[in-house]
């Protein structure tokens, strides 16, 4: 099954690791991208299979493959879940390097810059990963190291910094999901925004049709950086009984998304107070990575509190 190969200078060193992935698929339930598209081709396991295909020469490199390998939010939940201890994101990064060397120029989840950028360099200063660079009088993103946290998009004063593929985590997509849920429910319900590091305690891949008497919905916003004030306000405009925002503990967020979440939650709290609404109906919790039961407890406490407030 040999076809054309790329020179896998960087991937080559992972050959043994790629073989030792036992393909158990334990990573499926953790990946926000494959959970969004619901295709096996978007799972971390599929990325490993593609990397193996490239190294072994069984797969010809293509834009399609590159787009998949350039799409990752680096939450690393796949690595934590991996039954064989494979360093998945390091492999993805090396695959990106090889694909770039082979001439592929693909966006994936990498952030973009519109031509009307005024070169204020706010994004360059702000990027926690040093992925935003000023090159030849243009701002570019290094696609190998960009983790798609959206910090640059947040700080850009002109809206010239844009998210790449967002897999349901753009402002529009989050607002749409929020509205759809709230407008469908007859009773007022709550929204729980969870960053993907929080290991949200809910069904991972299935839907419960009957007897779904839950009074809230968990929506994954990837990182606090992606949660705009407007999204939070939109929930209240659609009669939400409350909004709980979960993000990482202080110092744990690699992209300072928790700081942004905190300030936005405070903003909405003040706003609610200023219009005589209960500020306690929006609340922020900081969840240790992987603390599923702690998260559930926070949800239960919040739900009890807002139902008592009524």
């Amino acid at each position: 099954m040999k076809t054309k190969t790329i020179e896998c200078k960087n991937l080559k060193k992972w050959e043994k690791t790629l073989a030792s992935c036992i393909r158990c698929g334990y990573c499926f339930e953790h990946c926000p991208i494959s959970k969004y598209t619901r295709w096996e081709s978007d799972t971390p396991r599929a990325k490993i299979i593609m990397a193996h295909g490239l190294v072994s020469g069984s797969l010809e490199p293509s834009d399609y493959i590159a787009e998949k390998l350039f799409s990752c939010f680096f939450c690393k939940r796949c690595e934590t879940a991996c039954s064989s201890g494979v360093s998945l994101t390091d492999i993805f990064i090396d695959a990106r390097k090889d694909l770039i060397e082979a001439g592929f120029n693909i966006t994936g989840t990498t952030t973009l810059t519109r031509p009307d950028c005024v070169l204020c360099l706010a994004c360059v200063r702000e990027c926690p990963h040093e992925a935003r660079l000023l090159v030849d009088n243009k701002i570019i993103t290094d696609p190998v190291i960009c983790q798609a946290c959206g910090r640059c998009v947040e700080v850009c004063p002109t809206g010239a910094a844009l998210n790449g593929l967002d897999f349901g985590t753009s402002k529009q997509a989050l607002q749409h999901e929020t509205m759809e849920y709230l407008q469908k429910s007859k009773k007022s319900k709550a929204i729980v925004f969870a960053c993907n590091w929080s290991y949200f305690p809910d069904l991972q891949s299935s839907i419960q049709v009957a007897a779904d008497n839950k009074t809230y919905k968990i929506i994954v916003n990837m990182c606090g950086n992606r949660l705009e004030k407007e999204t939070l306000i939109e929930a209240f405009l659609n009669n939400a009984s409350g909004v709980l925002v979960a993000c990482c503990p202080d110092g744990d967020c690699e992209h300072n998304g928790n700081e942004k979440a905190k300030s936005n939650v405070q903003y909405v709290k003040n706003l609610l107070q200023s219009i005589n609404m209960d500020p306690e109906t929006i609340h922020l919790v900081q969840i240790e990575h992987g603390d599923k039961s702690g998260f559930q407890m926070e949800i239960d406490t919040f739900m009890e509190k807002i139902s008592g407030n009524k």
């Binding site: 295709w39 096996e40 599929a46 593609m50 295909g53």
Partner: peptide, 26 residues
């Protein structure tokens, strides 16, 4: 889906084998 990469991905499971489908349908 029928991109060669999709066929390759769906061509294996947790076993030692690999063979390509012609198409994947959901």
């Amino acid at each position: 889906k029928s991109d060669p990469a999709d066929l390759y991905i769906y061509g294996s499971d947790s076993s030692v084998h690999n063979a390509l489908p012609w198409v994947i349908v959901r």
